[in-house]
């Protein structure tokens, strides 16, 4: 399995990667990273990840714009958000664009594992 972690914060990418490393559900997965939606789109085309875990609010291209671009390209793998903002409107927008989950920061590895249950 290959997972693309997208966040403009290096610290948060480290937190997400560390959480993933503790989860049996994704044991042995290869993790690749991108710093914004634009880079993630290119990385997704090149790396063909099985799952994308993305922040929402990022420079260049936001997480929801990334999801919509991947949908338009017809190349969207399983996709979920890990974001500091979590409103009903965001949940609905994510869901309507095909996102499998939206986990709010701060999160625990258990919360991420629960979310991944629907995505991998």
């Amino acid at each position: 399995m290959k997972i693309l972690v997208v966040d403009d914060s290096k610290a948060m990418r480290a937190i997400v990667k560390r959480a993933l490393s503790t989860l049996d559900r994704v044991a042995g997965a290869t993790i690749v990273e991108a710093v914004d939606g634009k880079e993630a789109f290119a990385t997704a085309q090149a790396e063909q990840p099985d799952l994308i875990i993305s922040d929402w609010n990022m420079p260049e291209m936001t997480g929801i714009e990334l999801l919509q671009a991947l949908n338009e390209a017809g190349t969207c793998p399983s996709f979920g958000f890990v974001t500091s903002e979590s409103t009903p409107e965001m949940h609905e927008l994510a869901r309507s664009n095909g996102a499998r989950f939206l986990v709010s920061k701060p999160f625990t590895p258990e919360a991420l594992d629960d979310a991944l249950a629907s995505a991998v």
């Binding site: 914060s9 610290a11 948060m12 500091s84 903002e85 409103t87 920061k105």
Partner: peptide, 24 residues
């Protein structure tokens, strides 16, 4: 980056607790 992310999470959670529609 660490302090920026702490501010981002704090602001995001505060924004989520506020009524209405706002952007961060």
């Amino acid at each position: 980056d660490t302090v920026g992310e702490l501010a981002n999470m704090t602001g995001g959670n505060i924004k989520s607790a506020l009524a209405g529609s706002s952007a961060l």
